[in-house]
Write a protein that binds this DNA or RNA. Structure first.
Length: 802
DNA sequence: GAGCATTGATTTTTT
DNA sequence: ATCAATGCTC
């Protein structure tokens, strides 16, 4: 028997594989060779199908584990798939499959193969390349625009970076775009693109998009490598195929070999012998077109692969009929789609509750009170998600959750790895790993301050460019740069010595030890401690904590990773998002954007902020492009179909926003058009308010700082009456709530002497004095971190914690 | 060169 | 409202 196959008893394994599958799922799992397209509606069990398909290839079709390549949308999904495969075939086999996102798979393969690559312009990379995130690549684009003497107003670096990214996602290299550029602007853009790319090579860095693009380009120019990989990956599985872009699709086609146009069916069958390609997706859930994902690829798939087996999974096992009807009634309004009807396999379920808050705080209170009621009925917070369109919306939600001691887990948002101190330290690590990285050099050279300013740096950069050496190398040779002052030269040389010392340590210390050493030897910790103790910066404590956290992350990594070295640590943190780190089981409600919720499911879902301009977002409305609006609608569809049992939809009648045109001001809102697309009899307002279905204010809203003036009626769009959901008085929390509303209640939360309070910036504190009364009340608060401060509760963001 | 004050730009989703 | 970039002073 071949060691590359597993020979399980046909009977039991077959049973395990087929158990619980419906006819269509079974068909997909047990396909033989060739290409297949699985159109899988939300909740139709596509993850199960993919997993079992992989195991079927291993066990029944006796394929080698190494021959299977499975592409998922997130690293978390990859981890889960590997776990599920492992539970069926054991760790020895499971670890030999290649499972990951496009980016992580390409990064892994490039680590081994990039030495073979040379671009058309002759650019090359070394094995120890680093991966640039958005910030790194943004600052490189900016440098490039400046160096080319272009007007930053006309060629805004932000836009240029975005344009380059879009080109790369469409599969165009700098050379290819240059030959296509016709207009003046495109000409300049190609100039920037070329210089930017050269800059990346000089820094021995790749951006996100390069991981796939460069790998494709390498496969194009190296037929040997291509055949090698085609031989190896005989079975390719792709999840979330509707969100694949041209560059990614090209990679798939390279690995699976193109089908020659005029080839007989017989030859085609031969071509696919002991090979397979299965793509799984749902056009209605395509939500990444802004990243150049193109769901038309899925529509054209059968043309590219002629003998494709088409399988539709239309049985939904996730949601109640009510939820599915809502989803279907919304998505029906899209024109660009494949007709598909989800069949429900569960009961009718409850109607969808809709709530209109006075403002975003009131809206959040409704959610929190509803959460408490769910908890009282024995429902876990961890089975519940609050989904929103933009990250900024998490703020008001968090505030109210904290006040009510409701544990929550925020996913995405300001990501841990985006924090300044974390990026600083990672820049050190990148520079230690790859001394050519100029962006990391520039980030670390004066952090903490080493007395090196702009002019000294300009001299160093000039010297490095003239001699075609890295900035770090130039720093080593600083005493040979005449323009530098003796002090500056010494400072550069010292820094170079520091990095050299750390590079040496990196060869025999673990990543976490290296982190500790670099933090102390660079003076970074000392700087933060000084800032913290001098009370100049109250956030310094928090930043020190974040750095401890990073060391913990490194220690965890060391205990879990196959190869716990600096290289894999850096690759990992470059590609792993917060979403991938979501812990299971923790009893906390999950907060995330609709985009982050893709692929997840929850018993209870709150969709918040259903307002015109927010969801659908202004950008998609202002673009006047039906396609953009349809994508927002798909996003709504994704949100609705995350829910298994209960779905809530909320919005606020007014919202403090800096999105809808005027910054920092409060605007009255119009309910989202998506609400009016739902059949009214699927919705219900709150039963606790049957007596006052009026939109007129009842009392002053105690959660907002201004008297309520509902102009809801006037701001209604000129759409017919059915556009108005039949809701909804103001939400009145249960009476046990601490500060029940009265007419004379001030417009802020009142505190008493001795109350423990929390401030977003100063942290924990205690009320030591109350000055004045009523509307004019002021508090003297002693903060643990920064001593006493007088605060006006009308403005300070204070939250009572006891 | 560092620290502070002012000015200007900002407006989605993320591997 | 908030932050980054710029300008001014020591």
């Amino acid at each position: 028997m071949n060691t590359n196959t597993i020979n399980l008893q046909a009977g039991p394994m077959e049973d395990t594989l087929t158990k619980g599958l419906n006819q269509h799922q079974l068909e997909a799992v047990s396909l033989n060779w060739g290409s297949s397209l699985v159109l899988a509606g939300a909740g139709s069990g596509k993850t199960t199908v993919l997993t079992k398909r992989a195991v079927y290839l291993l066990s029944t079709l006796k394929q080698a584990p190494e021959s299977i390549l499975a592409v998922t949308f997130t690293n978390k999904a990859a981890g889960e798939m590997r776990e599920r495969v492992e539970s069926l075939v054991g760790p020895q086999i499971a670890r030999r499959l290649m499972i990951g996102t496009f980016h992580s798979i390409c990064a892994r393969l490039l680590r081994q193969e990039i030495h073979r690559y040379k671009s058309k312009e002759g650019l090359t990379w070394k094995t120890n390349f680093v991966i640039y995130d958005e910030t790194d690549s943004m600052s490189l684009v900016k440098n490039t625009v400046q160096k080319l003497n272009l007007d930053e107003k006309v060629f805004a670096p932000r836009e240029m970076r975005y344009a380059i990214s879009a080109l790369k996602n469409d599969g165009l290299t700098a050379a290819q775009f240059t030959s296509e550029a016709r207009t003046y602007r495109d000409g300049k853009l190609s100039e920037i693109f070329n210089h930017y790319q050269a800059g990346l090579a000089r820094n021995n860095a790749l951006d996100f998009d390069d991981l796939i693009l460069i790998f494709n380009d390498l496969l194009d120019q190296d037929p040997d490598l291509r055949s090698e990989l085609q031989e190896r990956f005989r079975h390719v599985l792709v999840d979330e195929f509707q969100d694949t872009n041209q560059s990614q699709y090209k990679l798939i086609r390279s690995l699976c070999r193109e089908e020659p146009k005029d080839i007989t069916d017989e030859e085609l069958t031969k071509l696919w012998h002991e090979r397979s390609l299965m793509v799984v997706g749902d056009v209605d859930q395509s939500i990444y077109s802004w990243r150049k994902a193109d769901f038309r690829i899925i529509l054209g798939f059968q043309k590219d692969y002629r003998q494709t087996r088409l399988i539709k999974l239309e049985d939904n096992y996730r949601s109640t009929a009510s939820i599915l009807e809502v989803a279907n009634s919304i998505i029906q309004n899209n024109t660009e789609r494949i007709e598909k009807t989800l069949r429900c396999n569960r009961g009718q379920g409850a109607k969808i509750k809709v709530y209109a808050g006075m403002d975003e705080i009131d809206e959040a209170y409704f959610v929190v009170e509803e959460l408490k009621r769910l908890q009282a009925r024995g429902i876990n917070l961890s089975d519940t998600a609050i989904l929103y369109r933009t990250n900024a919306q998490s703020r008001s939600m968090e505030e109210v959750l904290v006040r009510n001691h409701t544990p929550y887990l925020m996913i995405g948002g300001t990501r841990f790895y985006d924090r300044a101190e974390i990026k600083d330290v990672i820049a050190y690590l990148k520079l230690i790993y790859n001394g050519s990285d100029g962006q990391s050099f520039l980030r670390t050279i004066n952090t903490p301050k080493r007395g090196l300013g702009k002019s000294s740096l300009d001299h160093l950069v000039e010297y490095a460019e003239k001699n075609n050496i890295s900035l770090l190398h130039a720093a080593v040779l600083a005493n040979k740069i005449p323009a530098l002052s003796a002090r500056a030269a010494k400072s550069f040389a010292d820094f170079a010595l520091l990095i050299e010392r750390l590079q040496d340590l990196a060869t025999h210390k673990s990543v976490s030890e290296l982190l500790e050493l670099l933090l102390s030897q660079s003076g970074y910790t000392r700087k933060l401690e000084e800032e913290a103790s001098a009370a100049k910066d109250e956030t310094a404590y928090g930043r020190l904590e974040n750095l401890r956290e990073l060391i913990t992350v490194a220690q965890e990594f060391e205990s879990l990773a196959d190869e716990p070295n600096l290289e894999s640590f850096l690759t990992r943190i470059s590609l792993v998002s917060d979403l991938d780190a979501v812990k299971h089981g923790e009893d906390a409600v999950r907060l995330m954007t609709l985009h982050s919720s893709k692929g997840l499911e929850f018993k209870n879902v709150f969709l918040v902020g259903l307002e015109e301009g927010l969801f659908p977002h202004v950008r998609s409305i202002n673009s006047h492009s039906p396609a953009a609006l349809e994508e927002e609608r798909r996003l709504m569809y994704v949100g609705v179909t995350r829910a298994e049992e209960r779905l809530y939809i909320t919005y606020s009648r007014k919202r403090a926003s800096f999105m809808t045109g005027n910054f920092g001001s409060t605007n009255y809102t119009i309910p989202s058009r998506f609400l009016s697309e739902i059949k009214p009899d699927l919705l219900t307002g709150l039963e606790s308010q049957p007596a006052t279905p009026s939109f007129e204010p009842q009392t002053q809203n105690r959660y907002s700082s201004q008297p309520q003036q509902s102009r809801f009626g006037q701001t209604q769009p000129s759409t017919p009456a059915q556009a108005k959901p039949r809701v909804l008085g103001r939400y009145t929390p249960p009476p046990e709530s601490p500060n029940h509303s009265t007419q004379s209640e001030p417009s802020f939360e009142r505190f008493k002497l001795g109350d423990q309070v929390m401030h977003t910036k100063f942290g924990m504190g205690k009320v030591t004095q109350v000055i004045g009364e009523g509307e004019k009340e002021l508090y003297n608060i002693e903060f643990q971190s920064s001593g006493k401060r007088l605060m006006d509760p009308k403005f300070a963001k204070l939250i009572k914690v006891n």
